[in-house]
Design a protein around this nucleic acid. Structure first.
Length: 431
RNA sequence: GUGGGCGUAGCUCAAUUAGGUUAGAGCGUCUGGUUGUGGCCCAGAAGGCUGGGGGUUCAAGUCCCCUCGCUCACCCCA
Protein backbone atom coordinates (compact mmCIF):
# COMPACT_ATOMS: atom_id res chain seq x y z
CA UNK A 1 0.00 0.00 0.00
CA UNK A 2 2.04 2.98 1.09
CA UNK A 3 4.18 3.62 -1.91
CA UNK A 4 6.38 6.65 -1.73
CA UNK A 5 4.65 9.92 -2.31
CA UNK A 6 1.58 11.51 -0.88
CA UNK A 7 -1.18 9.56 0.73
CA UNK A 8 -4.71 10.55 1.49
CA UNK A 9 -5.35 11.84 5.00
CA UNK A 10 -6.07 9.30 7.67
CA UNK A 11 -9.62 8.14 7.91
CA UNK A 12 -10.57 9.24 4.41
CA UNK A 13 -11.39 7.02 1.46
CA UNK A 14 -11.04 7.26 -2.29
CA UNK A 15 -14.08 6.24 -4.25
CA UNK A 16 -12.85 4.48 -7.38
CA UNK A 17 -14.73 3.80 -10.62
CA UNK A 18 -15.46 0.26 -9.48
CA UNK A 19 -17.30 1.65 -6.47
CA UNK A 20 -19.54 3.91 -8.50
CA UNK A 21 -22.37 1.50 -9.35
CA UNK A 22 -22.95 0.58 -5.71
CA UNK A 23 -22.79 4.20 -4.66
CA UNK A 24 -25.10 5.39 -7.41
CA UNK A 25 -27.50 2.61 -6.52
CA UNK A 26 -27.91 4.01 -3.03
CA UNK A 27 -28.41 7.54 -4.31
CA UNK A 28 -30.93 6.44 -6.91
CA UNK A 29 -32.95 4.37 -4.47
CA UNK A 30 -32.97 7.18 -1.94
CA UNK A 31 -33.92 9.86 -4.47
CA UNK A 32 -36.76 7.71 -5.68
CA UNK A 33 -38.18 7.12 -2.20
CA UNK A 34 -37.86 10.84 -1.51
CA UNK A 35 -39.68 11.76 -4.67
CA UNK A 36 -42.47 9.33 -3.82
CA UNK A 37 -42.99 11.18 -0.54
CA UNK A 38 -42.49 14.70 -1.85
CA UNK A 39 -39.16 15.34 -0.17
CA UNK A 40 -37.16 17.92 -2.11
CA UNK A 41 -33.40 18.03 -2.55
CA UNK A 42 -31.29 20.60 -0.76
CA UNK A 43 -27.61 21.06 -0.25
CA UNK A 44 -25.77 23.31 2.12
CA UNK A 45 -22.12 24.33 2.54
CA UNK A 46 -19.52 21.83 3.65
CA UNK A 47 -18.43 24.24 6.36
CA UNK A 48 -20.53 26.46 8.58
CA UNK A 49 -19.85 28.85 11.39
CA UNK A 50 -18.67 26.94 14.43
CA UNK A 51 -21.43 28.58 16.41
CA UNK A 52 -24.06 26.66 14.47
CA UNK A 53 -22.86 23.33 15.80
CA UNK A 54 -21.90 24.60 19.25
CA UNK A 55 -25.47 25.72 19.72
CA UNK A 56 -27.27 23.22 17.54
CA UNK A 57 -25.54 19.91 17.99
CA UNK A 58 -24.93 20.80 21.60
CA UNK A 59 -21.99 21.62 23.80
CA UNK A 60 -22.23 18.45 25.88
CA UNK A 61 -22.01 16.07 22.92
CA UNK A 62 -18.86 14.14 22.06
CA UNK A 63 -19.15 15.52 18.58
CA UNK A 64 -18.71 19.09 19.70
CA UNK A 65 -16.36 18.38 22.56
CA UNK A 66 -13.74 16.43 20.69
CA UNK A 67 -14.64 15.49 17.16
CA UNK A 68 -15.04 18.68 15.16
CA UNK A 69 -12.72 19.95 12.45
CA UNK A 70 -12.69 23.58 13.51
CA UNK A 71 -10.42 26.27 12.12
CA UNK A 72 -10.12 30.01 11.76
CA UNK A 73 -10.20 31.30 8.22
CA UNK A 74 -8.00 34.11 7.01
CA UNK A 75 -10.56 36.65 8.09
CA UNK A 76 -10.51 35.31 11.63
CA UNK A 77 -13.93 33.63 11.55
CA UNK A 78 -14.24 30.28 13.27
CA UNK A 79 -15.56 27.70 10.85
CA UNK A 80 -16.28 24.00 11.21
CA UNK A 81 -16.49 21.19 8.69
CA UNK A 82 -20.00 19.94 9.33
CA UNK A 83 -20.14 16.96 11.70
CA UNK A 84 -23.80 16.31 10.87
CA UNK A 85 -26.48 17.70 8.60
CA UNK A 86 -29.44 18.74 10.68
CA UNK A 87 -28.35 22.14 12.05
CA UNK A 88 -27.45 23.33 8.55
CA UNK A 89 -30.86 22.42 7.24
CA UNK A 90 -32.65 24.23 10.04
CA UNK A 91 -30.37 27.21 9.48
CA UNK A 92 -31.20 27.20 5.77
CA UNK A 93 -34.92 27.01 6.54
CA UNK A 94 -34.65 30.10 8.68
CA UNK A 95 -32.35 31.98 6.37
CA UNK A 96 -34.56 31.46 3.34
CA UNK A 97 -37.83 32.11 5.08
CA UNK A 98 -39.22 28.70 4.28
CA UNK A 99 -42.04 29.34 6.75
CA UNK A 100 -43.85 30.94 3.81
CA UNK A 101 -43.96 27.57 2.05
CA UNK A 102 -46.69 25.04 2.71
CA UNK A 103 -45.73 23.16 5.89
CA UNK A 104 -44.12 20.83 6.59
CA UNK A 105 -41.13 21.58 4.39
CA UNK A 106 -39.62 18.21 3.54
CA UNK A 107 -36.01 18.16 2.44
CA UNK A 108 -33.41 15.52 1.68
CA UNK A 109 -29.70 15.64 1.15
CA UNK A 110 -26.55 13.71 0.39
CA UNK A 111 -23.43 15.15 1.91
CA UNK A 112 -20.00 14.46 3.35
CA UNK A 113 -19.66 14.87 7.09
CA UNK A 114 -16.50 15.14 9.14
CA UNK A 115 -15.64 13.88 12.58
CA UNK A 116 -12.17 13.59 14.05
CA UNK A 117 -12.21 10.13 15.55
CA UNK A 118 -10.15 6.99 15.48
CA UNK A 119 -10.88 5.25 12.18
CA UNK A 120 -12.02 1.65 12.09
CA UNK A 121 -14.26 -0.52 9.96
CA UNK A 122 -17.43 1.43 9.28
CA UNK A 123 -16.00 4.58 10.79
CA UNK A 124 -14.24 7.26 8.79
CA UNK A 125 -13.20 10.80 9.49
CA UNK A 126 -14.99 11.84 6.35
CA UNK A 127 -18.06 9.82 5.63
CA UNK A 128 -21.20 10.43 3.62
CA UNK A 129 -24.77 10.56 4.71
CA UNK A 130 -28.11 10.49 3.10
CA UNK A 131 -30.57 12.33 5.26
CA UNK A 132 -33.96 13.96 5.36
CA UNK A 133 -35.66 16.55 7.54
CA UNK A 134 -39.33 17.48 7.77
CA UNK A 135 -39.74 20.93 9.27
CA UNK A 136 -42.77 22.79 10.51
CA UNK A 137 -45.14 20.06 11.59
CA UNK A 138 -45.29 18.43 15.03
CA UNK A 139 -47.60 15.58 14.09
CA UNK A 140 -46.50 11.99 14.67
CA UNK A 141 -47.56 11.08 11.15
CA UNK A 142 -44.57 13.11 9.99
CA UNK A 143 -42.27 11.09 12.24
CA UNK A 144 -43.75 7.94 10.77
CA UNK A 145 -43.17 9.15 7.22
CA UNK A 146 -39.56 10.09 7.93
CA UNK A 147 -38.87 6.67 9.42
CA UNK A 148 -40.71 5.05 6.54
CA UNK A 149 -38.50 6.94 4.09
CA UNK A 150 -35.31 5.51 5.55
CA UNK A 151 -36.80 2.07 6.10
CA UNK A 152 -38.12 1.85 2.55
CA UNK A 153 -34.84 3.03 1.09
CA UNK A 154 -32.96 0.28 2.91
CA UNK A 155 -35.54 -2.27 1.87
CA UNK A 156 -35.33 -1.11 -1.73
CA UNK A 157 -31.60 -1.67 -1.50
CA UNK A 158 -32.21 -5.26 -0.53
CA UNK A 159 -31.23 -5.03 3.13
CA UNK A 160 -34.14 -6.64 4.85
CA UNK A 161 -32.81 -7.95 8.14
CA UNK A 162 -32.39 -4.65 9.94
CA UNK A 163 -34.16 -3.75 13.15
CA UNK A 164 -35.79 -0.45 14.03
CA UNK A 165 -35.42 0.70 17.61
CA UNK A 166 -37.58 3.52 18.91
CA UNK A 167 -38.00 5.43 22.11
CA UNK A 168 -39.49 8.68 23.30
CA UNK A 169 -37.50 11.11 25.35
CA UNK A 170 -40.44 13.34 26.20
CA UNK A 171 -40.52 17.10 26.18
CA UNK A 172 -38.52 19.81 27.96
CA UNK A 173 -41.23 20.05 30.63
CA UNK A 174 -40.99 16.40 31.57
CA UNK A 175 -37.27 16.08 31.10
CA UNK A 176 -36.20 17.56 34.47
CA UNK A 177 -38.35 15.10 36.37
CA UNK A 178 -36.98 12.17 34.41
CA UNK A 179 -33.48 13.45 34.71
CA UNK A 180 -33.87 13.80 38.46
CA UNK A 181 -35.25 10.29 38.64
CA UNK A 182 -32.24 8.94 36.79
CA UNK A 183 -29.83 10.75 39.04
CA UNK A 184 -31.70 9.57 42.10
CA UNK A 185 -31.62 6.04 40.80
CA UNK A 186 -27.98 5.90 39.77
CA UNK A 187 -26.42 7.86 42.62
CA UNK A 188 -26.67 5.03 45.16
CA UNK A 189 -25.02 2.77 42.56
CA UNK A 190 -22.28 5.21 41.68
CA UNK A 191 -19.59 2.83 42.90
CA UNK A 192 -20.77 0.10 40.52
CA UNK A 193 -20.70 2.04 37.27
CA UNK A 194 -17.77 2.96 35.09
CA UNK A 195 -15.80 6.16 35.41
CA UNK A 196 -17.35 7.62 32.27
CA UNK A 197 -20.78 6.96 33.62
CA UNK A 198 -19.96 8.57 36.94
CA UNK A 199 -19.20 11.68 35.00
CA UNK A 200 -22.36 11.35 32.95
CA UNK A 201 -24.27 11.29 36.20
CA UNK A 202 -23.68 15.00 36.54
CA UNK A 203 -23.12 15.98 32.90
CA UNK A 204 -25.74 14.14 30.93
CA UNK A 205 -27.65 11.51 32.89
CA UNK A 206 -29.64 10.39 29.85
CA UNK A 207 -26.49 8.93 28.39
CA UNK A 208 -26.10 6.62 31.36
CA UNK A 209 -28.69 4.45 29.69
CA UNK A 210 -26.80 3.43 26.62
CA UNK A 211 -23.46 2.56 28.19
CA UNK A 212 -22.61 -0.93 26.96
CA UNK A 213 -20.35 -1.93 29.84
CA UNK A 214 -21.74 -4.98 31.64
CA UNK A 215 -21.71 -3.45 35.14
CA UNK A 216 -23.47 -0.35 33.88
CA UNK A 217 -25.93 -2.41 31.90
CA UNK A 218 -26.74 -4.42 35.02
CA UNK A 219 -27.51 -1.32 36.95
CA UNK A 220 -29.39 0.48 34.21
CA UNK A 221 -31.61 -2.50 33.50
CA UNK A 222 -33.84 -1.39 36.35
CA UNK A 223 -33.41 2.31 35.72
CA UNK A 224 -36.44 4.56 35.39
CA UNK A 225 -37.84 4.63 31.88
CA UNK A 226 -38.43 7.83 30.03
CA UNK A 227 -41.78 6.55 28.85
CA UNK A 228 -43.01 6.54 32.43
CA UNK A 229 -42.30 10.24 32.68
CA UNK A 230 -43.94 11.34 29.47
CA UNK A 231 -46.65 13.97 29.62
CA UNK A 232 -50.04 13.10 28.15
CA UNK A 233 -49.32 14.85 24.86
CA UNK A 234 -45.96 13.16 24.39
CA UNK A 235 -47.41 9.78 25.31
CA UNK A 236 -50.19 10.15 22.79
CA UNK A 237 -47.70 11.31 20.19
CA UNK A 238 -45.58 8.22 20.72
CA UNK A 239 -48.56 5.88 20.74
CA UNK A 240 -49.77 7.29 17.46
CA UNK A 241 -46.34 6.96 15.91
CA UNK A 242 -46.16 3.31 16.86
CA UNK A 243 -49.64 2.70 15.54
CA UNK A 244 -48.71 4.29 12.23
CA UNK A 245 -45.50 2.30 11.99
CA UNK A 246 -47.64 -0.78 12.46
CA UNK A 247 -49.89 0.37 9.64
CA UNK A 248 -46.80 0.77 7.48
CA UNK A 249 -45.73 -2.78 8.34
CA UNK A 250 -42.53 -1.52 9.86
CA UNK A 251 -41.69 -3.70 12.85
CA UNK A 252 -40.15 -1.73 15.69
CA UNK A 253 -38.64 -2.57 19.01
CA UNK A 254 -39.20 -0.33 21.96
CA UNK A 255 -35.75 0.40 23.36
CA UNK A 256 -35.90 2.13 26.72
CA UNK A 257 -32.20 2.77 26.66
CA UNK A 258 -32.03 4.47 23.32
CA UNK A 259 -30.92 8.01 24.07
CA UNK A 260 -28.87 9.12 21.04
CA UNK A 261 -25.80 11.25 21.24
CA UNK A 262 -27.20 14.61 20.22
CA UNK A 263 -28.61 17.17 22.59
CA UNK A 264 -31.49 18.43 20.56
CA UNK A 265 -33.80 15.44 20.45
CA UNK A 266 -37.16 15.44 22.14
CA UNK A 267 -39.96 12.91 21.91
CA UNK A 268 -39.18 10.47 19.09
CA UNK A 269 -35.72 8.95 18.75
CA UNK A 270 -34.92 5.97 16.55
CA UNK A 271 -32.09 3.89 15.19
CA UNK A 272 -31.80 1.23 12.54
CA UNK A 273 -29.27 -1.47 13.31
CA UNK A 274 -28.15 -4.78 11.82
CA UNK A 275 -29.10 -8.01 13.61
CA UNK A 276 -25.78 -8.65 15.31
CA UNK A 277 -24.32 -5.20 15.33
CA UNK A 278 -21.92 -3.65 17.75
CA UNK A 279 -21.94 -0.03 18.76
CA UNK A 280 -20.49 1.41 15.57
CA UNK A 281 -22.75 -0.52 13.28
CA UNK A 282 -25.79 1.76 13.35
CA UNK A 283 -26.93 2.22 9.78
CA UNK A 284 -29.09 5.23 10.41
CA UNK A 285 -30.76 7.13 13.16
CA UNK A 286 -32.65 10.26 13.96
CA UNK A 287 -35.50 11.77 15.85
CA UNK A 288 -37.60 14.79 16.58
CA UNK A 289 -36.08 18.13 17.50
CA UNK A 290 -38.89 20.61 18.13
CA UNK A 291 -36.70 23.06 20.02
CA UNK A 292 -33.57 23.13 17.89
CA UNK A 293 -34.64 26.16 15.86
CA UNK A 294 -35.14 28.23 18.98
CA UNK A 295 -31.79 27.16 20.26
CA UNK A 296 -30.33 28.61 17.09
CA UNK A 297 -32.09 31.90 17.78
CA UNK A 298 -35.13 31.54 15.53
CA UNK A 299 -38.84 31.16 16.11
CA UNK A 300 -40.30 27.87 17.25
CA UNK A 301 -40.05 25.22 14.53
CA UNK A 302 -40.84 21.57 15.09
CA UNK A 303 -38.80 19.13 13.06
CA UNK A 304 -37.95 15.50 12.62
CA UNK A 305 -35.27 13.83 10.53
CA UNK A 306 -32.59 11.22 10.16
CA UNK A 307 -29.10 10.64 8.87
CA UNK A 308 -27.75 7.41 7.48
CA UNK A 309 -24.21 6.54 6.51
CA UNK A 310 -23.79 5.55 2.87
CA UNK A 311 -20.61 3.61 3.62
CA UNK A 312 -22.45 1.63 6.28
CA UNK A 313 -25.37 0.96 3.97
CA UNK A 314 -22.88 -0.45 1.48
CA UNK A 315 -21.25 -2.52 4.23
CA UNK A 316 -24.63 -4.04 4.93
CA UNK A 317 -25.34 -4.75 1.29
CA UNK A 318 -22.10 -6.69 1.21
CA UNK A 319 -22.88 -8.39 4.51
CA UNK A 320 -26.10 -9.86 3.14
CA UNK A 321 -24.29 -10.95 -0.02
CA UNK A 322 -25.71 -8.57 -2.59
CA UNK A 323 -23.81 -8.22 -5.83
CA UNK A 324 -23.10 -4.78 -7.20
CA UNK A 325 -23.61 -3.89 -10.83
CA UNK A 326 -20.65 -3.76 -13.17
CA UNK A 327 -19.10 -0.47 -14.14
CA UNK A 328 -20.13 1.09 -17.40
CA UNK A 329 -18.12 0.09 -20.42
CA UNK A 330 -18.14 1.60 -23.88
CA UNK A 331 -20.13 -0.18 -26.59
CA UNK A 332 -17.80 0.65 -29.41
CA UNK A 333 -14.07 0.91 -30.00
CA UNK A 334 -12.78 2.76 -33.04
CA UNK A 335 -9.34 1.70 -34.18
CA UNK A 336 -7.01 3.63 -36.50
CA UNK A 337 -4.52 1.42 -38.28
CA UNK A 338 -2.67 4.30 -39.90
CA UNK A 339 -2.08 7.97 -39.26
CA UNK A 340 -4.23 8.76 -42.25
CA UNK A 341 -7.18 7.19 -40.43
CA UNK A 342 -7.03 9.45 -37.40
CA UNK A 343 -9.40 12.04 -38.81
CA UNK A 344 -11.97 9.48 -39.84
CA UNK A 345 -11.75 7.78 -36.46
CA UNK A 346 -12.35 11.07 -34.72
CA UNK A 347 -15.38 11.99 -36.78
CA UNK A 348 -16.84 8.49 -36.63
CA UNK A 349 -16.52 8.51 -32.84
CA UNK A 350 -18.12 11.93 -32.67
CA UNK A 351 -21.03 10.75 -34.78
CA UNK A 352 -21.58 7.71 -32.59
CA UNK A 353 -21.47 9.77 -29.43
CA UNK A 354 -23.98 12.23 -30.82
CA UNK A 355 -26.23 9.27 -31.47
CA UNK A 356 -25.86 8.22 -27.85
CA UNK A 357 -23.47 5.34 -28.39
CA UNK A 358 -20.68 5.14 -25.79
CA UNK A 359 -17.49 5.05 -27.80
CA UNK A 360 -13.82 4.64 -26.99
CA UNK A 361 -11.13 5.39 -29.55
CA UNK A 362 -7.62 4.28 -30.24
CA UNK A 363 -5.58 7.45 -30.00
CA UNK A 364 -2.72 6.41 -32.21
CA UNK A 365 -2.20 4.19 -35.21
CA UNK A 366 -1.28 0.66 -34.23
CA UNK A 367 -1.63 -2.90 -35.41
CA UNK A 368 -5.09 -4.46 -35.60
CA UNK A 369 -3.95 -6.99 -33.07
CA UNK A 370 -3.09 -4.49 -30.39
CA UNK A 371 -6.21 -2.44 -31.05
CA UNK A 372 -8.45 -5.47 -30.84
CA UNK A 373 -6.75 -6.60 -27.69
CA UNK A 374 -7.49 -3.26 -26.16
CA UNK A 375 -11.06 -3.23 -27.47
CA UNK A 376 -11.60 -6.62 -25.93
CA UNK A 377 -10.02 -5.65 -22.62
CA UNK A 378 -12.16 -2.56 -22.40
CA UNK A 379 -15.31 -4.58 -22.90
CA UNK A 380 -16.50 -3.03 -26.16
CA UNK A 381 -19.00 -5.07 -28.14
CA UNK A 382 -18.15 -3.64 -31.53
CA UNK A 383 -14.84 -2.62 -33.06
CA UNK A 384 -14.74 -0.24 -35.99
CA UNK A 385 -11.51 -0.58 -37.88
CA UNK A 386 -10.16 2.18 -40.09
CA UNK A 387 -6.98 1.60 -42.10
CA UNK A 388 -5.66 2.88 -45.39
CA UNK A 389 -7.99 0.60 -47.33
CA UNK A 390 -11.04 1.98 -45.56
CA UNK A 391 -9.93 5.56 -45.87
CA UNK A 392 -9.49 5.19 -49.62
CA UNK A 393 -12.82 3.49 -50.06
CA UNK A 394 -14.71 5.81 -47.73
CA UNK A 395 -15.84 2.86 -45.65
CA UNK A 396 -15.09 1.30 -42.27
CA UNK A 397 -14.82 -2.30 -41.14
CA UNK A 398 -17.35 -3.20 -38.49
CA UNK A 399 -16.41 -6.20 -36.37
CA UNK A 400 -18.79 -7.59 -33.76
CA UNK A 401 -16.61 -8.71 -30.85
CA UNK A 402 -19.08 -11.17 -29.47
CA UNK A 403 -18.71 -13.32 -32.56
CA UNK A 404 -20.16 -13.05 -36.03
CA UNK A 405 -18.76 -11.91 -39.32
CA UNK A 406 -17.30 -8.51 -39.79
CA UNK A 407 -18.76 -6.31 -42.48
CA UNK A 408 -17.69 -3.37 -44.50
CA UNK A 409 -20.01 -0.35 -44.26
CA UNK A 410 -20.14 3.04 -45.89
CA UNK A 411 -19.19 6.01 -43.75
CA UNK A 412 -22.74 7.36 -43.91
CA UNK A 413 -24.11 4.09 -42.54
CA UNK A 414 -21.68 3.57 -39.69
CA UNK A 415 -23.97 4.85 -36.96
CA UNK A 416 -27.05 2.95 -38.07
CA UNK A 417 -25.16 -0.25 -38.77
CA UNK A 418 -23.41 -0.09 -35.42
CA UNK A 419 -26.65 0.52 -33.61
CA UNK A 420 -28.19 -2.41 -35.44
CA UNK A 421 -25.41 -4.74 -34.32
CA UNK A 422 -25.59 -3.45 -30.74
CA UNK A 423 -29.33 -4.05 -30.78
CA UNK A 424 -28.71 -7.59 -31.95
CA UNK A 425 -30.22 -7.06 -35.37
CA UNK A 426 -28.66 -7.94 -38.68
CA UNK A 427 -26.04 -5.50 -39.81
CA UNK A 428 -27.47 -4.68 -43.20
CA UNK A 429 -24.02 -3.85 -44.41
CA UNK A 430 -22.71 -5.42 -47.56
CA UNK A 431 -19.95 -7.91 -47.05
C1' G B 1 -8.80 9.25 23.59
C1' U B 2 -7.41 3.57 25.49
C1' G B 3 -5.61 -1.36 24.35
C1' G B 4 -4.29 -5.70 20.73
C1' G B 5 -2.84 -7.53 15.59
C1' C B 6 -0.61 -6.25 10.99
C1' G B 7 2.52 -3.40 6.95
C1' U B 8 7.08 -7.21 0.88
C1' A B 9 5.52 -4.81 -6.92
C1' G B 10 -1.20 -1.87 -8.77
C1' C B 11 -3.65 -6.72 -6.49
C1' U B 12 -2.99 -11.77 -3.92
C1' C B 13 1.12 -13.86 -1.77
C1' A B 14 6.64 -16.26 -1.53
C1' A B 15 11.59 -15.50 0.47
C1' U B 16 14.55 -22.19 2.93
C1' U B 17 13.59 -24.01 11.39
C1' A B 18 18.09 -18.35 15.87
C1' G B 19 19.44 -12.82 10.50
C1' G B 20 23.48 -14.64 4.94
C1' U B 21 24.92 -13.38 -2.01
C1' U B 22 21.71 -9.23 -7.73
C1' A B 23 13.85 -9.83 -2.82
C1' G B 24 10.58 -14.08 -6.32
C1' A B 25 5.75 -15.86 -8.45
C1' G B 26 0.71 -15.51 -10.16
C1' C B 27 -2.88 -11.89 -11.71
C1' G B 28 -2.96 -7.16 -14.01
C1' U B 29 -0.33 -3.53 -17.47
C1' C B 30 2.73 -2.69 -21.93
C1' U B 31 5.23 -4.87 -26.28
C1' G B 32 5.95 -8.84 -29.54
C1' G B 33 4.55 -14.03 -31.61
C1' U B 34 6.37 -11.36 -40.09
C1' U B 35 1.97 -10.32 -44.72
C1' G B 36 -4.37 -5.70 -41.65
C1' U B 37 -7.87 -9.00 -36.77
C1' G B 38 -9.39 -9.71 -30.09
C1' G B 39 -10.48 -13.51 -26.18
C1' C B 40 -6.80 -19.01 -25.12
C1' C B 41 -1.60 -19.88 -25.50
C1' C B 42 3.78 -18.47 -25.80
C1' A B 43 7.83 -14.83 -25.15
C1' G B 44 9.80 -10.33 -23.38
C1' A B 45 9.54 -5.72 -20.63
C1' A B 46 8.15 -2.28 -17.14
C1' G B 47 6.95 -2.29 -12.04
C1' G B 48 9.82 -2.75 -4.90
C1' C B 49 15.05 2.14 -0.96
C1' U B 50 10.53 -4.72 1.81
C1' G B 51 5.40 2.08 4.76
C1' G B 52 9.19 5.83 6.79
C1' G B 53 13.33 6.90 10.30
C1' G B 54 16.90 5.24 13.76
C1' G B 55 19.52 1.16 16.25
C1' U B 56 21.99 -3.92 16.98
C1' U B 57 25.26 -6.87 13.61
C1' C B 58 30.64 -8.48 9.37
C1' A B 59 25.52 -8.94 7.37
C1' A B 60 18.42 -6.93 8.47
C1' G B 61 12.46 -7.96 4.52
C1' U B 62 13.71 -11.03 8.88
C1' C B 63 15.81 -8.64 15.68
C1' C B 64 14.98 -3.79 18.84
C1' C B 65 13.01 1.37 19.30
C1' C B 66 10.29 5.46 17.25
C1' U B 67 6.90 7.12 13.65
C1' C B 68 3.05 6.76 9.89
C1' G B 69 -0.82 3.86 8.06
C1' C B 70 -4.31 -0.22 8.04
C1' U B 71 -7.13 -3.39 11.12
C1' C B 72 -9.90 -5.35 15.61
C1' A B 73 -11.97 -4.29 20.39
C1' C B 74 -13.33 -0.15 23.79
C1' C B 75 -15.53 4.68 23.43
C1' C B 76 -18.77 7.14 20.36
C1' C B 77 -21.58 7.65 16.37
C1' A B 78 -23.49 7.17 10.60
Amino acid sequence: MPSPGLQRPRGTADRLPADAPAWDGVLRAFARECRLRNFQPISTPTFETTELFDKGTGATTDIVQREMYTFDDRGGDSLTLRPEGTPSIVRAYQQHGMHVLPQPVKLYYVLPVFRYDRPQAGRLREHHQIGAEALGDPNPAVDAEVIDLLWSTLRALGISDLALHVNSLGDPESRPAYRAALVAFFTPHADKICADCQQRLTQNPLRLLDCKKPPCERVSADAPRSLDYLGDAAREHFDTLRRLLGALDIPCTLDHRLARGLDYYNRTVFEIVPPHGSAQSTVGGGGRYDYLAETLGGPHLPGVGFGSGIERILLNRRRVGLEEAATHVPDVYVAPLADAALTVVTTVAAGLRQAGVATEVGYAAASPRSHLRRANAIGARVALIVGNREVEAGRVTLKPLGGGDQVDVALDDVVSSTQAVLAGRATGGDA
